[in-house]
Amino acid sequence: MPTVSLTVNGNPVHADIDPRTLLVQLLRENLRLTGTRVGCDTSQCGSCVVHMDGKAVKSCTVLTLQAEGTAITTIEGLALGETLHPMQQAFRDNHGLQCGFCTSGMIMTAVDMVRRKGHALDDHTIRRELEGNLCRCTGYHNIVKSIAAGARAMESADPLRRAAE
């Protein structure tokens, strides 16, 4: 079996894997990081979004072997110790989740969105940027609110957090 080496949430990972292993399978099955989820088989729902070298990717559409040498961040790696990421806090404060299944992907997408689009996100931009994330519970209304609030909060987040970004 081929081997792979990468970093997940700051921890080095070395594994012998079936070449078919998708990144999401490595995370969920090998590493038991089950916060990254699978909701479809056509790369559309976005429940599996993680960051690869700081950019959002759909981990259901990346072979683990393609991720050789990369640094992966999952939802489990977003909080700094016990301190929630401002985007996580914003989702709670604005009721941006109901069943929670799409939430990891939404939060990872939202953090990536802020990195690319800045801290002043209008409603239209957020909705456009969510094209690859499906939610069936919230009607998106409060997700959009959460992301706008989270984006603002990330700007004024503590220096430790901003250094980590």
Partner: peptide, 9 residues
């Protein structure tokens, strides 16, 4: 094309 995560890959 696609959406942000797809455009990254």
């Amino acid at each position: 094309i696609g959406e942000p995560a797809v455009r990254h890959r």
